[in-house]
C-alpha cells in the first residue's frame, strides 16, 4: 500500500526531531566517554596484552604471539581451574536455588513477623563479602569455631574438622558460604513472582482435587519457570566470575583445589607476575562466559 512516488521533496526527519536526536546523543555522550575509558579501552588492552610476556613489577617484556594461548590450551592450569570453577558454580548455584525457592515458599506463607523474617533472610546478600568471610572464618575456626563446637555438642562429629585447609572440606565450605551469601537473591526474585500468581489458579487446582504437593508441581512451578531461567543464568554468570569470596576464604587453597578462573588470573598476574599470561587466561575465561551472557541477553531481549 506504500507508494514511494508520492514521496515528499522533504525527506527524513523534521528539524525538531533532529534536535531531539541531538539532545539524546548529548545526554548519552558522557556515559559513552566513561565507558570507552574504563571498559572498552581496558577490554581491548586485555586482548593486546595477552600476546605479550610482561613481568609485573617492572612492566617489561616482549611480544610472544600465541604462546600464552598455547600455554592456556596445553598447560594444566587453565583446565584445572575451569573444572574447579564449574564444580563451585554448579554446587553453590544448586544450593542457592533449592534454598532460595524453599525459603521463598515458606516466607510467602502467612507467618508471624513476616517482614522481620524477610529482612533477616535478605541481610547476607547485602553484606560485604569481607564481613561474611570474617564471620565464617571465625565459625569455621577449628578449635574454637562455633560450627565445630555446635556439631560436637549435637553429637554429629566427635573431633573438630579442618574446614578450609583440606579437601573436600574446603570446597564444601566455600560452596556453603557462597550459598548462604547469595541465596537471598533467589528468595527476593521468587517471592516477587509468587505474589503475582493469581489466587484463582490455586482455587481451580483445589477444586480439581489437587493436594498441596500437586499444587506446587502443577501451579507454582510452571509459573516460576521463566523467572527461574533468568535467575539461574544471572547467578551462574555471577558465581562463575566470583573472586572476593573464594580469594578471602581459601585463597584458592589448599594448593589450587579451590582456585577458580578469577583466582587463577589474579594469581598469574600479581602472584606469579606474569601479566601477559594472566590476560590470556582472562580472555579465555570471558569466552567461556560469553555462552551464558548471550543466553541471558537473548532471554532479556525476549522479555522486552
Amino acid at each position: 500500500m506504500t507508494t514511494l512516488t508520492t514521496d515528499p521533496p522533504r525527506n527524513g526527519l523534521s528539524p525538531l526531531e533532529r534536535a531531539y536526536a541531538r539532545l539524546g546523543v548529548v545526554l548519552i555522550t558522557p556515559t559513552i566517554l566513561v565507558f570507552l575509558l574504563v571498559i572498552v579501552y581496558p577490554l581491548l588492552a586485555a586482548l593486546y596484552l595477552s600476546v605479550f610476556q610482561i613481568y609485573t613489577p617492572t612492566l617489561q617484556g616482549g611480544f610472544v604471539g600465541a604462546d600464552n594461548y598455547i600455554e592456556l590450551l596445553t598447560g594444566k592450569a587453565f583446565w584445572s581451574s575451569l573444572r574447579v570453577t564449574i564444580v563451585w558454580t554448579v554446587g553453590t548455584l544448586t544450593l542457592q536455588i533449592v534454598a532460595g525457592v524453599g525459603i521463598a515458599l515458606l516466607l510467602h506463607q502467612n507467618i508471624w513477623f513476616r517482614s522481620l523474617a524477610r529482612s533477616l533472610v535478605l541481610f547476607p546478600y547485602f553484606l560485604s563479602t569481607v564481613v561474611a568471610v570474617l564471620v565464617w572464618k571465625w565459625l569455621f575456626n577449628d578449635l574454637y569455631g562455633a560450627l565445630n563446637q555446635g556439631l560436637m555438642q549435637l553429637g554429629i562429629i566427635d573431633m573438630p574438622l579442618d574446614w578450609l585447609g583440606s579437601m573436600p572440606n574446603a570446597m564444601i565450605g566455600v560452596i556453603l558460604v557462597g550459598a548462604w551469601k547469595y541465596f537471598p537473591f533467589v528468595v527476593i526474585a521468587v517471592l516477587a513472582r509468587l505474589q503475582t500468581i493469581p489466587e484463582n489458579l490455586y482455587e481451580a487446582a483445589r477444586i480439581d482435587g489437587a493436594g498441596p504437593i500437586a499444587r506446587f508441581w502443577d501451579v507454582t512451578l510452571p509459573q516460576l519457570r521463566s523467572i527461574l531461567t533468568v535467575i539461574i543464568l544471572l547467578r551462574a554468570i555471577w558465581d562463575f566470575k566470583e573472586f572476593d569470596l573464594l580469594y578471602l576464604l581459601t585463597g584458592g587453597g589448599p594448593v589450587t583445589s579451590t582456585q577458580t578462573l578469577s583466582l587463577l588470573v589474579y594469581q598469574e598476574a600479581f602472584g606469579l607476575n606474569q601479566m601477559g599470561q594472566a590476560a590470556a587466561y582472562s580472555v579465555g575465561m570471558m569466552l567461556v562466559m560469553l555462552v551464558f551472557m548471550v543466553l541471558y541477553i537473548r532471554q532479556t531481549k525476549e522479555k522486552a
Partner: peptide, 25 residues
C-alpha cells in the same frame, strides 16, 4: 548501546583489572 550496557553489566572484573592497573600506574 543498550545491549552493550547489559553485556558490560555481566563482565568479570578480572578481565579489566590488569589493563586498569597498568592504566593507573
Amino acid at each position: 548501546l543498550a545491549m552493550l550496557v547489559l553485556f558490560t553489566y555481566l563482565l568479570p572484573s578480572v578481565v579489566l583489572i590488569i589493563p586498569l592497573y597498568l592504566m593507573m600506574v
